[in-house]
Computed example of a mutant assay.
Amino acid sequence: MIADRKDDHVRLAAEQQRRSGAHNQFDDVSFVHHALAGIDRSDVSLATRFGGIAWPVPLFVNAMTGGSAKTGAVNRELAIAARETGVPIATGSMSAYFADPSVADTFAVMRRENPDGFVMANVNANASVENARRAVDLLQADALQIHVNAVQETVMPEGDRSFSGWAPRIGEIASGVDVPVIVKEVGFGLSRETVALLRDLGVRAADVAGRGGTDFARIENDRRLNDRSENGGPENGGRERADYSYLNGWGQSAAACLLDAAGVGVPMLASGGVRHPLDVARGLALGASAAGVSGRFLTTVLDGGAAALVARITAWLDQLAALMTALGARTPADLARCDVLVRGELRAFCADRGVDTRRLATRSRSSSTAPDTIGGIR
């Protein structure tokens, strides 16, 4: 049952990616072009640091899958690509391993194929501290992701229905494991209030994982409506299947979450709808320390294997460095001092949440340190 669900997730996520529209709220963010702001490419470093964690690049392969033979093969290809490009990588939820230890290798393959890389284990917010430690030990993980997914669980026919224990459990895990803990949504976003609570619970970073990428409410509803189990629907004497399609598109975008939670005091990561290197740069400009990608990288692996993903990641990193060169950003953190404009629905969200976006359009003036620098131009 669990293996079938994991295979369904991969299949439906890939189908969703291939038919998804081009627009999301990253498109509401644009850089102010300063024609003489550019620097030398040799002065650009992609290294990023946050919460005591150092990565060679501000891009990572985010949590996807594991728990079946097919998904184990996907994880192998992802791990090879991470090894060849140096990007950090996270496994998918390891709940299947806790239920059935025989599927351990579908997750452990990530460490075996990527022995020296930065690998993150992944558990849900219901995991015991003991199981969190088991996950870390299996992968010799450098960090632990805890995913929160109340909306997905609500739509999932076999999902959890008790969420009140999640926050205290996250605190227990954060203090009970020996690696940094990163809490992530699965595509519905983290509000300012949630990020502040995570800070108080002792997590090292928050991955906002916003709306605009893979929609797990849609995936679980597709699974629900396509269920052909014995008691799955009225044609088999069962109850009529509940349709949760009205929840498609639930939540806040990654861009909205980053702006909403700015200054809370915990490092943030940007994922959810990252489509290309410009979206990575946009996320970094809005305050993220790195950007995570799942859907785009999943379809790349399914279509062309590890070699195709190596080529794509290499191109993304090269193009990100090129963008930083033109923008005058020597480091990923410097992008957060570049002038950006916020428009459309994203600006309306910020207005309702009390976020002043006007300051972002001229912030290079106040952040510049060189005496001959005006408006970010030297």
Rank of each mutant, 00 (worst) to 15 (best):
V74N: 14
T48L: 12
G263H: 09
G159C: 05
E77P: 01
P115W: 10
N122D: 00
R347E: 06
L286D: 00
T331R: 01
V264E: 05
P180T: 07
C350D: 07
K6A: 02
R76H: 13
L286Y: 09
R169Q: 09
V183I: 06
S164H: 08
L78I: 10
D334S: 13
R199M: 12
I377G: 11
R112G: 02
E235Q: 14
G251K: 10
V340H: 04
P234L: 12
R199I: 12
V301W: 00
L190R: 14
L286I: 06
P180A: 05
V74K: 11
V186Y: 13
S162M: 08
N221A: 10
D7N: 14
R11A: 13
T357E: 03
A205M: 08
T331N: 03
R76L: 07
L323S: 04
C338M: 13
R218M: 15
A47S: 11
V293F: 12
A206R: 12
S245N: 12
A69G: 12
R363Q: 10
D200C: 09
V301R: 07
R18T: 14
R76V: 10
Q16G: 03
M94H: 09
L327H: 06
G273P: 03
A96N: 10
F26Q: 08
H23R: 13
L201I: 11
A242F: 10
S164N: 00
Q25T: 14
Y244N: 07
A322G: 10
P101C: 00
S367N: 11
S95L: 15
D215C: 02
R228C: 13
G354L: 01
P332M: 01
G273A: 00
D8R: 10
V136I: 15
A270L: 00
S245K: 10
L197K: 04
A14I: 07
D372K: 08
V109E: 03
L269K: 05
E193I: 00
D356W: 04
A14P: 00
Q17R: 12
G202D: 06
A321R: 15
A96L: 09
R161P: 10
N236G: 02
F31G: 03
L309T: 04
F31D: 05
R18Y: 12
S42D: 14
E230L: 11
A14V: 09
G86R: 12
D279H: 05
R5L: 06
H23L: 05
T331H: 02
R111A: 03
V195Y: 14
T357Y: 04
N24H: 08
A209F: 06
R204P: 02
A73K: 12
T106N: 08
G67C: 02
T106V: 00
L309C: 02
N24A: 00
E130L: 09
T48F: 09
W166M: 13
D27I: 10
G72I: 07
T85M: 04
G212Y: 03
I146L: 11
N226M: 14
G86D: 09
R211K: 12
R169Y: 00
L320G: 10
I377T: 14
L259A: 14
Y246A: 15
A262Q: 15
V87I: 04
L320E: 09
A285W: 11
S45F: 01
A311Q: 05
